[in-house]
């Protein structure tokens, strides 16, 4: 679809729209522990009853902002030592924004228990604890596609003792210090007041028939409030001890990869373990960093941005303090004000031949009506890292189709005032 010139993409934008039927990708290493990734709202997803919301971009973007607020509050509360900040801010958010996890659009299916039961989980590099709704839903459960996991039907399910080191460590991490009798409880609250509370437990996790993990720690949710999506929970991929990455360290040595499909009508994959055989020469590696304010997230050392092959005038310090993370659950990249303004201005300068139209609000403020153009040429965007590695974004990663071709927007947003 792209006739790439040196510094631009020339694209028939209609080719980037999702089709009405699913076209599974044939790529990906099928020999590895590989799970198929689908877009929650696309035709490849079996979450059929939720497809009706596929074009509700307003809700998707609002949920995305809630997630970003949640990430920032997790980090900011560590900065000022105010552990109650996220909770106090959460009360100001409208309930219709639903869950911060709702913005995480990519879903995989795993098996849990003995016999194993399939569960569709949002995979999330910004969460550490895997959780799923559990029978008997002592508090409440929201509707989900698959049957809700029933621990009493699993012969390998075990509750974690309150006095175990694992429970103590979880309680320390989550600041939730409760048990019922001798059973450890977990609680996770997100930035919009959605929450899950339940039993901290272990059971057998099945990724593929050859990738089965006994005694996998997870949250068995008995009260799950504020979630509106049809998935069964979260697959936590962040850097905490209880994430799937740490729990499978002996087999995969903390190596995982994913590919998010270019459109919602194709599929991607989530794989665990290093690639087999010769290394892929096309892979560009850059340094994985840790934020000084939070070790849970995956940090990257962004130093600059190129547009149209030209380096934007942005001080590297803009990206380094408090830092930059890579997140599978945030939809639209967020940039500090200085960086966003430089990027937006350069993009607009390259797009003067197309009619600029109003965006939905200040969130996406650079949108074009491209409905009368068979092809569109827009600038390439590259991220430059501190170690000199340059990453060129795919053509699909630059624009966001807010309203078909009538509102095609630059898919970046400016961070709120850091002091707000």
């Amino acid at each position: 679809f792209a006739l790439a010139e040196a510094d631009t993409h020339t694209v028939d934008l209609r080719s980037l729209f999702p089709a009405t039927t699913c076209s599974p990708s044939t790529k990906g290493n099928k020999r590895k522990a590989s799970l198929e990734v689908v877009h929650k709202h696309g035709p490849c997803s079996h979450l059929a009853q939720h497809k009706a919301t596929a074009t509700n971009h307003t809700q998707i973007l609002e949920q995305d902002q809630v997630r970003v607020n949640s990430i920032n509050s997790q980090i900011f509360k560590k900065l000022n030592g105010n552990e109650d900040l996220s909770q106090s801010k959460a009360t100001t958010l409208p309930a219709r924004w639903a869950t911060s996890q709702g913005a995480s659009n990519y879903v995989v299916t795993v098996g849990l228990g003995t016999p194993n039961k399939p569960l569709s989980l949002v995979f999330d590099t910004g969460s550490y604890l895997t959780w799923t709704q559990c029978q008997p839903c002592a508090g409440s459960c929201y509707p989900q596609k698959e049957p809700i996991f029933d621990p009493s039907a699993s012969t390998s399910y075990t509750n974690i003792s309150c006095n175990s080191t694992d429970c103590i460590q979880l309680r320390t991490t989550t600041k939730f210090n409760r048990c019922v009798a001798d059973t450890c409880l977990y609680a996770l609250e997100y930035g919009d007041s959605s929450y899950t509370i339940g039993l901290f437990a272990t059971d057998k996790l099945t990724l593929t028939p050859n990738d089965v993990f006994d005694g996998f720690f997870f949250g068995c949710g008995q009260k799950n409030e504020g979630f509106i999506n049809g998935t069964a929970g979260i697959l936590g991929l962040s850097r905490n001890k209880f994430s799937i990455i740490e729990q499978t360290i002996q087999k995969y040595n903390r190596f995982f990869s994913y590919c998010l499909p270019p459109t919602a009508s194709s599929t991607g994959y989530l794989s665990f373990g290093a690639p087999d055989g010769a290394s892929n020469a096309a892979v560009k590696y850059t340094r994985l960093t840790t934020l000084s304010l939070s070790s849970d997230f995956y940090g990257i050392d962004v130093a600059g941005i190129n547009v149209n092959g030209k380096k934007l005038s942005i001080p590297a310090s803009v990206f380094s303090s408090p830092g930059t993370i890579i997140d599978s659950g945030t939809v639209i990249s967020r940039l500090p004000s200085t960086a966003y303004t430089a990027l937006r201005d350069a993009f607009r300068a390259a797009m003067t031949s197309y009619p600029l139209v109003p965006g939905p609000d200040e969130f996406l403020d650079t949108c074009y009506d491209l409905s009368s153009y068979p092809t569109v040429t827009y600038p390439k965007i590259e991220f430059v890292f501190g170690d000199g590695v340059t990453l060129e974004l795919d053509a699909t990663g630059i624009v966001y189709f807010l309203n078909g071709l009538k509102q095609v927007c630059l898919a970046f947003a400016e961070n709120d005032d850091a002091n707000d």
């Binding site: 892979v283 590696y285 990257i300 990249s333």
Partner: peptide, 30 residues
């Protein structure tokens, strides 16, 4: 904080070598 979101990660393989302290990107990965 700046966030590199999932729209910008589309259609590329993203590899997390956490033990090796590096993250990789391969274009056209899907």
């Amino acid at each position: 904080i700046a966030i590199f979101g999932n729209t910008q990660q589309k259609n590329m393989e993203v590899l997390y070598d956490v033990a090796g302290g590096r993250v990789g990107f391969a274009p056209g990965g899907c």
